[in-house]
């Protein structure tokens, strides 16, 4: 069931280049794709292929050189320029999960989770309640008052996922979220992304090298030398030799 916002992600001709003349580098070339709400997509590619470039463009950290992007039905990049306030868009439309949990060390788990809401001026009582609910759903409610250093790696990653989902973002960007976790924990994390996508209607883009994660994604995007290839088939088809 899709209960969140509608719109997903639509990208058209996103390009990014650096330098000029001899130093000219085409980091991303005319990338275009759509990710539907509730869909989980894996982004594969070797180091230096342009994954991070695409991630920073989708995260509105670095604008592209050209192209168009909408997130959650809202135009956020037009002609290579960020439209509107990138901070507000990030606070409301984007969620981030990283290889390391990247929790703020001086905030408790609950404070880390509700941080995004408080940054967006959601009243404290509502923020606390929503933090309790999502931590309950992710099984870390009993660690709410602990600092990140007092949590295990798996707990830290669950708290980070709770933080990325609490504001019901239209797009969840996950950068190698299972790389530092064991097989079982990695699978649990990917299940969480699936649940988040289905239950909250978020479009999820997972950058990963972890083959174990691929059987839990709907589609796979591959990128090499800045050229993005959008997979339209299911994972089972991809895992079949010659299927892709």
């Amino acid at each position: 069931m899709t209960g969140g916002r509608s719109g997903g992600v639509v990208a058209r001709s996103l390009s990014k280049h650096y330098g000029e003349g001899n130093t000219y580098v085409q980091a991303l070339s005319e990338a275009g794709f759509e990710i539907q709400p509730g869909e989980v997509v894996a982004l594969l590619g070797p180091s230096g292929s342009g994954k991070s470039t695409l991630l920073t463009i989708l995260g509105l950290i670095n604008p592209p050189s050209s192209g168009w992007l909408s997130i959650g039905g809202q135009e956020v990049i037009r002609d290579g320029q960020i439209v509107g306030n990138a901070n507000i868009i990030r606070r409301r439309e984007l969620g981030f999960v990283f290889q390391r949990s990247n929790l703020i060390p001086f905030l408790t788990a609950a404070e880390n989770v509700r941080l995004v809401l408080e940054l967006d001026d959601v009243p404290g009582r509502e923020a606390r309640q929503r933090a309790r609910d999502i931590m309950e759903a992710l099984g870390v409610a009993d660690r709410a008052d602990h600092l990140p250093a007092q949590l295990s790696g798996g707990q830290q990653q669950r708290v980070a996922i709770a933080r990325s989902l609490i504001h019901q973002p239209s797009l969840l960007l996950a950068d190698e979220p299972t790389a530092s976790l064991d097989k079982e924990l990695g699978r649990q994390v990917m299940q969480l992304f699936r649940s988040a996508a289905k239950d909250r209607g978020a479009a999820v883009l997972v950058v990963t090298h972890d083959q174990r994660a691929l059987d839990l994604v709907d589609r796979i995007f591959e990128i090499e030398d800045g050229v993005l290839t959008v997979g339209s088939e299911g994972v089972a088809a991809h895992s079949t030799p010659g299927g892709r």
Partner: peptide, 18 residues
């Protein structure tokens, strides 16, 4: 000491004034 946390706050969309 907390430059990483500050970078994270920026990534999460914290206003400059925060």
């Amino acid at each position: 000491d907390k430059i990483h946390s500050i970078a994270l706050l920026k990534l999460l969309g914290a206003r400059r004034t925060v």
